[in-house]
């Protein structure tokens, strides 16, 4: 899967879970400070990524990712 496609799908998931416009979600957006993610939403995001990409991720490592770009890189490791 191309990294560009992964990023596109990550942004779609982030937009759905955090209920923000996709145009506001950029690779260097911080989930907490820029997009307003709360603790439970961080957990929802990881669950949604797992469902979207059909992977099982290391939960603690996944929850430590702070930016959209970081999430793209992290997921790329699982889908390639």
């Amino acid at each position: 899967m191309e990294k560009g496609e992964i990023q596109e799908r990550v942004i779609k998931v982030v937009s759905n879970v955090l209920k923000v416009d996709p145009s506001m979600v950029e690779p260097d957006s911080n989930f907490v400070f820029d997009l307003g993610a709360e603790s439970t939403q961080s957990v929802q995001l990881v669950a949604a990524f797992e469902e979207e990409f059909n992977v099982e991720m290391d939960n603690e490592a996944a929850l430590s990712i702070q930016t959209v770009g970081g999430a793209v890189d992290f997921i790329t490791r699982y889908v390639q």
Partner: peptide
């Protein structure tokens, strides 16, 4: 069961 898997219940609680 890890906390990611229980997120629908956690969301409902909040």
């Amino acid at each position: 069961i890890n906390k990611i898997k229980v997120h629908p219940v956690a969301r409902w609680v909040l």
